[in-house]
Write a protein that binds this DNA or RNA. Structure first.
Lengths: 159, 159
DNA sequence: GCCGGTCCTTCACGGCGACGAAACAAACAT
DNA sequence: ATGTTTGTTTCGTCGCCGTGAAGGACCGGC
């Protein structure tokens, strides 16, 4: 719920944070134009029912957007997602860093190797093994590492 | 532009067709509730500016939705469409490149052969086989490769 | 119609390389 | 002392790609 244009700064903040918002627009003022589905506006004065109707729709959309949640990794080796968490040992923590930077995009085996072993990769097969171990750890969170053959790996939410 | 609730049937049709629409709601009537971003409503009576503002936003969203409907091929062998994706092996990736350049237009077998095998085509039958495989991969995305006999192939959305 | 051919579709096979996973052992931490 | 992390070896599996062969679909001529 934001007043316009008096709370313009606050609106900008909320837009960046990606939260749903309803803009209250007094008579004689042009409404803000955004194609963002999480923003809507009402012309004042407005009935309670109308406001409630718009808020409900926005809440519905926000719920839908929330399912596209991205996991969060902290410096202490904890990976959080949707209230749950797992702890990651050093190597897997570094691997996870790159995978999260490129969430839902392909990360080459090379990039993973460089991230996991900055001093140089120990053996030919180490990466494969760590991917397997990382997979097992991520499963309880509903995260999946897909392999894109001969190109690399990709992290996403389980189908 | 749909009147509510008098044109309820027409609204249902438009919803199914997936087109953007603005619902005109007279005083004292509850507005229809949908979380579909391509639907919006105004309380009558409304000023021209307010209606135009909502129409413009809807048009923007419709444009965005349309762009999300054409498949996208990235350099890592991923083909994305509407939130889903499939990975394409090298040969099929190159074939798909040409087919997408000429989306919904005919691509000659010759052009496909040159794209798929720049060094020269190995055997007479290889292209056909790869078309079959590509078809199977594209099916889950709702994409279809149609044959235009003795002319070539054509990529489009499944009817 | 019937027939010939051409064009296209699909399957089954084998080689090759990329990837997955178990099992073992050593290093490390608490 | 026990459990965790990490690297290695080894073997199995699966995806990719080309080949051959067995049909279907379409189009002409007769």
């Amino acid at each position: 719920m934001v007043r316009w244009p008096t709370e313009e700064a606050r609106l900008a903040e909320i837009r960046i944070s990606g939260q749903a918002r309803l803009v209250l627009v007094p008579e004689g003022v042009a409404p803000p134009l955004t194609s963002d589905p999480l923003e809507d506006w009402v012309r004042l004065p407005a009935s309670d029912e109308d406001v409630r109707a718009r808020v409900r729709v926005l809440e519905d959309r926000a719920r839908g957007a929330e399912e596209a949640n991205i996991p969060e990794l902290d410096e202490n080796g904890l990976l959080r997602l949707g209230g749950q968490w797992v702890s990651l040992p050093p190597v897997e923590h570094r691997l996870m860093g790159v995978l999260l930077d490129r969430y839902r995009a392909v990360v080459s085996r090379d990039a993973l190797a460089r991230a996991g072993w900055p001093e140089g990769i120990p053996g030919r097969n180490v990466l494969d093994v760590h991917i397997v171990r990382l997979r097992r750890r991520l499963a309880p969170l509903g995260l999946v590492i897909r392999t894109v053959r001969s190109r690399g790996y990709l992290l996403e939410a389980a189908s």
